[in-house]
């Protein structure tokens, strides 16, 4: 049994996987370790880096799939990737297809990573900041998988020349309007800045959220399907949801109007007499 530690992300794993592949070590004889698993310093070996010149080739598309799946945070993430790499290198192309036992797990992870990128684009909320030496906008987000570095380009397209900072509990990125400064470990001051509270600025958004909801259509099941409860704390409107659900069940379902609107005086419109 070979016990190999990965501490430099996908690039590090790829180097070590190549070496093992080159040496002909089958997947069943490798135990992969990383920061999500307890260290076992005695068992782990320092692997020589891969010596170029080997005959083993794997299609680039497969490597791209593996790179994507490596962003999925799970304790056993490297073993699956090596098994697929091994099988594809031996000519079994089905290993990377969604219908295959390994391939379907690979694609499940890729799908989850894609969803996480989408969630970050959708649910991150910027708080305006500005001031000397500070970014124009800041945001705190906690993605489940390692996606910030691939997801952040979207905001440069979206925000034009504005500068912004996004931090998570692991990494962070500061965009100054021209260049990205990505850090795998976000400095403490980034994390503090990113968590700047903004109670007043959210008022308009919360008012909008309350009003655009139609209580006659309340559907908690559909809500949870699209916006799982773990994400409610990620967005400011999340704390309105329980009360809105209760209100809708307590009789607001009779018509669609928001209570904030129905308490106001109404106005019928009379047509002017035609001349």
């Amino acid at each position: 049994m070979r016990c190999v530690r990965v501490d430099g992300g996908f690039a590090d794993w790829r180097d070590k996987a190549r070496t093992l592949l080159h040496e002909g070590v089958p997947p069943a004889l490798v135990s992969w370790r990383d920061e999500l698993m307890p260290a076992d310093l005695f068992a782990e070996e320092a692997l020589a880096r891969y010596a170029p010149g080997s005959q083993v080739t794997v299609p680039r598309q497969v490597l791209e799939l593996l790179e994507r799946a490596a962003r999925f945070r799970v304790a056993e993430r490297w073993a699956l990737l090596y098994r697929i790499l091994w099988r594809v290198a031996l000519g079994d192309a089905a290993a990377a297809l969604p219908g295959d036992p390994d391939g379907s797990e690979l694609h499940l992870r890729i799908k989850a990573v894609g969803r996480e990128i989408h969630q970050l684009h959708a649910l991150l909320r910027f708080v305006p900041l500005g001031g000397a030496g500070l970014p124009d906008y800041v945001a705190w987000f906690e993605p489940e998988h390692e996606v910030l570095d691939v997801a952040c380009g979207h905001f440069a397209e979206r925000m034009g020349r504005h500068s912004w900072l996004i931090a998570t509990s692991r990494d962070g990125v500061w965009y100054d309007g021209e260049r990205f400064d990505y850090r795998a470990e976000a400095p403490d001051e980034w994390q503090t800045l990113a968590r700047t509270p903004d109670p007043e600025g959210q008022a308009l958004w919360l008012a909008y959220y309350r009003s655009t909801f139609n209580p006659t259509r309340v559907n908690p099941q559909a809500l949870r399907q699209h916006l799982p409860q773990r994400l409610w704390q990620q967005v400011p409107e999340g704390r309105l949801i329980p009360a809105l659900l209760v209100q809708a069940r307590m009789g607001a379902q009779r018509d669609g109007q928001a209570p904030e609107v129905s308490v106001r005086p109404g106005k019928r419109i009379r047509l002017r007499q035609q001349d």
Binding site: Y209, F213, N214, P215, N219, A222, L223, L227, I241
Partner: peptide, 10 residues
């Protein structure tokens, strides 16, 4: 992009 969902799941 769906930035949020209201309690009707929309």
């Amino acid at each position: 992009i769906c930035h949020s969902f209201t309690p009707d799941g929309r």
